[in-house]
Design a protein around this nucleic acid. Structure first.
Length: 202
DNA sequence: CTAAAGATTGGCT
DNA sequence: GCCAATCTTTAGC
């Protein structure tokens, strides 16, 4: 197994390279994992959709200024957590949001985590497990405690390099989701996902 | 101090 | 397609 460590590139490069790699979380001594199938790039201080826009620096987004390879985890809508991988050099404020996974290992545990957090009435299918940024963090029990975690050193959260890389022409791009407040930046094709994949958020 | 909004999700019409 | 849930963060006064 090779750990993925190429986090120092720009966010778009990292975003594209992360597709097809495996996010691994050790939870209660068990390996939970999934293939990354959907991501979004946030380009830093000049990107109106990024939390670091205009150099904004607060307690919440501080870890987004760490060197590439660290996690930036924040709570959204008071309910969900979102997992980002910081890119570039220290101070860049760039990151990639992990938006969806194809569940691979310990699906039963991830299912339990999903149902446990909030009561769901309908039965959860495999494609409902990690098909959104808030869903995958709930399935993998990732919260603010992981903010600033080093994905190159951590023994509970990291990314593994798959042997076979994703074909260039199977990567599709679109505008990012839920960033309408960002004006022209909302239109930039900075969401990347695997074509025809069943496990996407939308 | 107060208010408003948010890189979402699930349930209901 | 619409809307509530739920609460932290941030901007503004």
């Amino acid at each position: 197994m090779m750990r993925f460590t190429q986090f120092e590139d720009d966010a778009v490069t990292v975003a594209r390279n992360l597709l097809g790699q495996r996010l691994v979380r050790v939870f209660d001594g068990e390996r939970l994992s999934g293939t990354i199938v959907e991501v979004e790039a946030y380009l830093g201080l000049h990107d109106a959709a990024a939390h670091t826009f205009n150099g904004r620096r607060t307690a919440r987004n501080e870890s987004m200024y760490l060197p590439g390879g660290h996690a930036y985890v924040y709570m959204i809508y008071g309910i969900h957590h979102c997992l980002n991988v910081v890119c570039g050099a220290a101070g860049d404020g760039t990151a990639v949001l992990i938006r969806a996974l194809e569940p691979l290992e310990a699906c039963e545990t991830m299912l339990r985590n999903r149902v446990g957090g909030r009561t769901l009435r309908r039965e959860l299918k495999k494609h409902d497990l990690c098909s959104g940024p808030g869903k995958l963090t709930q399935a993998m029990a990732i919260d603010r405690d992981f903010d600033g975690e080093s994905l190159t050193d951590s023994s509970r959260l990291w990314i593994e390099q798959e042997v076979v890389s994703v074909a260039h022409d199977s990567i599709v791009s679109s505008p990012r989701i839920g960033v309408d407040y960002a004006g022209e930046w909302a239109k930039e094709p900075l969401r990347f996902f695997l074509r025809h994949n069943v496990f996407l958020s939308c």
